[in-house]
Nucleic acid binder design. Structure first.
Length: 110
DNA sequence: CCACTGACGAGTG
DNA sequence: GCACTCGCCAGTG
């Protein structure tokens, strides 16, 4: 069967998973993709998040890359700084290299 | 319609 | 551990 995919459908699947990441925890792009039923498509998660309109309710700041670092956006680090501040406000610590200890903070859905 | 451009990560050498 | 390839989607001009 050829599954008819509506453009933007993947974005919705991704947003639905991001919305579930609890406060004080982080998830990786690859993890979000996996949970959204899009294994090995971490990049799509990045695309989906970059397409977010400002002022949305999604906790997009809880998504970091597989190395535990915040991915840069090409907006001169502005949004990256916002992201870091929000995470620190939730109690998440960064080491001197700007790395989050995933072993401690990564979200593990039941 | 085509070309280009992004919040990634696993695999390979 | 580093450099490189490749897979994959949606918006813009």
């Amino acid at each position: 069967m050829s599954e008819t995919r509506i453009p933007g459908e993947r974005h919705q699947l991704i947003y639905a998973v991001v919305a579930q990441v609890p406060r004080g925890r982080v998830a990786t792009y690859g993890q979000i993709a996996q949970l959204a039923g899009l294994p090995r498509q971490a990049r799509l998660v990045g695309y989906a998040l970059s397409a977010l309109a400002a002022g949305n309710r999604l906790p997009w700041h809880r998504v970091v890359n597989a190395r535990g670092r915040i991915s840069e956006r090409g907006d001169d680090g502005r949004s990256a700084l916002t992201q870091r501040r929000r995470l620190e406000k939730e109690g998440i610590r960064f080491d001197a290299d700007g790395v989050i200890a995933l072993a401690q903070y990564q979200w593990r859905p039941e």
